[in-house]
Design a binder for these strands. Structure first.
Length: 281
DNA sequence: ATGGCAGAAGCATTCTGA
């Protein structure tokens, strides 16, 4: 099962590029960020014609997420949806459409567009950290429902200096600060694994290149789009790749898609054996 | 320290992103 994430920077502007990419790669699940469109205006038909269902959670001009899946999705949750109670700091996050969750083939897919945060001394930065703290609580609750979680999307955080083309220049700044990395690690809590780093330990791999300053041509990028999976899924993981090809399109998104291959159909795997043992005890 | 490039809204220019 191929699961992909892609910040497309407007689903309507990028529609033909997304359809072309789907035709080439044939993902089972495609999680989009920055769709920038209200749900009634989401172009669902081109996806349905290719055999996909669209679950959109968007707003005018900014943000917006969607899960596009060939496989039926259940238990869809849009935003934090009251799962954290009536705390004021939760309700204020419901204006910005940045989170959508669904169960697909036994895996809880959590698609996020983490706030950028602007700069460390801004109100938007506090919003980013508070949003991540809410996501951590949300995950605590979701984990009680499913031990098989795939948390993916645009995190707007480089997890380590290896994920920045020039760490000396950007260290400590937005998307690279210890505060953000700690907030991210508090979400992951060691229970979720960075799929990409299972296969690639070296620097020099990016998922986002600034539109400005000829950044893509100079390969000055960041790795800020991630696919995190539960430890119980790592034995099912077959690959994780960043596909930079769409970044070479005319009028591209500034982000490239990231994709994993999970082999959920092979029964001779560790996780299911562990499950049987667990129930026998 | 600042702007650079791009999209949306909407028609000149501002807001936002990363």
């Amino acid at each position: 099962m191929l699961i992909a994430t892609w910040n497309v920077n407007s689903v309507r502007t990028r529609l033909s590029q997304i359809i072309n990419w789907i035709n080439q790669v044939n993902p089972d699940i495609l999680c989009l960020q920055e769709t920038k469109v209200i749900d009634n205006d989401f172009p669902i038909k081109p996806f349905e014609e290719l055999g996909y269902k669209v679950i959109a959670f968007g707003q005018k001009s900014y943000n917006g997420v969607a899960i596009i899946s060939k496989i039926e999705a259940e238990n869809v949750i849009k935003g934090f949806s009251g799962f954290l109670g009536d705390q004021n700091d939760v309700n204020k996050f419901e204006d910005q459409k940045r989170l959508i969750t669904a169960d697909i083939k036994g895996v809880k897919i959590i698609n996020v567009y983490v706030p950028n945060g602007s700069s460390l001394n801004s109100e938007k930065f506090d919003y980013k950290i508070n949003w991540l703290n809410c996501l951590s609580s949300f995950l605590d609750k979701q984990e009680k429902k499913s031990q098989l979680i795939c948390l993916l999307g645009d995190f707007n955080i480089a997890p380590s200096n290896k994920d920045i083309h020039n760490p000396q220049r950007y260290e400590g700044g937005i998307m690279a600060s210890e505060i953000e990395r700690n907030a991210l690690n508090n979400v992951l809590k060691g229970r979720l694994i960075d799929s990409f780093r299972i296969y690639e330990k070296n620097t020099g791999h990016w998922s986002w290149w600034d539109y400005r300053n000829n950044a893509y041509e100079l390969n000055k990028g960041w790795r800020i789009d991630h696919i995190y999976i539960s430890k119980a899924l790592t034995s099912k993981l077959k690959s994780c790749v960043i596909d930079s090809n769409p970044r070479e399109n005319l009028q591209p998104s500034d982000h490239a898609p990231v994709m994993i291959n999970l082999d959920l159909d092979n029964p001779n795997e560790d996780y299911f054996d562990e499950e049987e043992d667990f129930f026998e005890i």
